[in-house]
């Protein structure tokens, strides 16, 4: 794939919050590139630094060190120009409670200098959102929908969405996924943070995984689901000898050995051959290999020993 200029690029972007008593490194030397026309998923648990990254990109907060560029422009120096071309949905959306959905949209459209609200109405219709209600009367899901309308109504080149499907029902999540695919088909870019792994798996091209303010990996989603390990389940004609547990455990790449009567289940990292040789004394009736779910991969990145997490060369290679 020919790489064009990145839409989002950060260089050693760092944010440290300082209070009288402590310093919190919310984001640590983030180096990230998001290419035009891709949907980039930004994964991490609460407190990992996802929202901090987004707020830095939008110049709501200022970096302690490093810098961010969007559309090739400095995020701080050219914030107004960047905001013209960006649609943003915050993680915790607050709007003017006394206004109706339509009044909010009109106000924001006026600030953006938009005259034509057809796109906003189409989006609202698609998301089944009643714009005549006051914001205070909306459910959290409907407030989220209104946020999506606001973020998308000017058809921005870049969408920055913080936990976009929070509070949406499954049908609306499907609709949202479809909308994101359409955005990508139009050559526009989406940067979305999420901890809903299914959502990321369904729509994202690449995923960045963040933990404790550090970017641990950036992978293509399909590659992420094919990396490192799989679950191997074998069913034997006879009961599996208990001694195999220790024997298999000694094989490099094999872990989490479980034996249940005639069934053996292991987590395999690396080649199959050593495992197959080790069980060659038994008669295998069935063998199944299951790819790990994104959630399992995700948890692997966050395991206690951090072995998988520490692969900076991969971040460099793919970012």
């Amino acid at each position: 794939m020919v790489q064009s200029d990145p839409i989002i690029q950060t260089e050693n972007l760092t944010k440290v919050y300082t209070s009288r008593r402590s310093q919190t490194r919310a984001l640590d030397r983030l180096n990230l590139s998001v290419q035009p026309g891709e949907i980039f998923g930004y994964l991490g648990p609460n407190g990992a630094g996802k929202t901090t990254t987004i707020r830095l990109l939008l110049d709501l907060i200022r970096p302690t060190a490093g810098r961010a560029r969007i559309f090739g422009l400095d995020a701080q120096a050219h914030a107004v120009e960047i905001h013209r071309r960006v649609g943003f949905l915050p993680g915790e959306l607050s709007l003017w409670r006394s206004l109706t959905g339509l009044q909010v949209i009109r106000h924001i459209a006026n600030v953006r200098g938009m005259r034509d609200l057809r796109c906003a109405h189409q989006l609202a219709e698609r998301l089944q959102l009643d714009l005549s209600k006051r914001v205070r009367d909306y459910s959290s899901g409907n407030r989220r929908k209104l946020g999506l309308v606001i973020a998308m109504m000017h058809e921005p080149e870049l969408l920055i969405l913080d936990e976009p499907t929070n509070g949406l029902d499954p049908l609306m999540q499907q609709e949202f996924n479809q909308m994101m695919r359409e955005v990508r088909a139009e050559g526009r870019t989406v940067f979305l943070s999420s901890h809903v792994l299914g959502e990321v798996q369904a729509i994202c091209d690449r995923v960045g995984i963040l933990r404790e303010g550090e970017l641990r990996a950036v992978e293509r989603v399909e590659r992420l689901t094919h990396v490192d390990f799989r679950w191997v389940e074998m069913r034997f004609r006879e009961d599996v000898p208990a001694a195999w547990r220790e024997r298999l455990g000694d094989i490099s790449g094999v872990s989490e050995v479980s034996i249940d009567g005639t069934t053996l289940r292991v987590r395999l990292q690396g080649d199959f051959d050593p495992l197959l040789r080790a069980v060659s004394g038994g008669y295998i009736r069935d063998l199944r290999v299951k790819e790990p779910t994104l959630e399992e991969i995700f948890l692997t990145f966050y395991d206690g020993d951090g072995k998988r997490a520490a692969q900076p060369e991969r971040v460099k290679e793919l970012a």
Partner: peptide, 14 residues
């Protein structure tokens, strides 16, 4: 304090 400013300041306005 309400968080509305996040939306306001994400608009193209200084």
């Amino acid at each position: 304090d309400d968080g509305v400013l996040d939306v306001v300041l994400s608009l193209p306005v200084p």
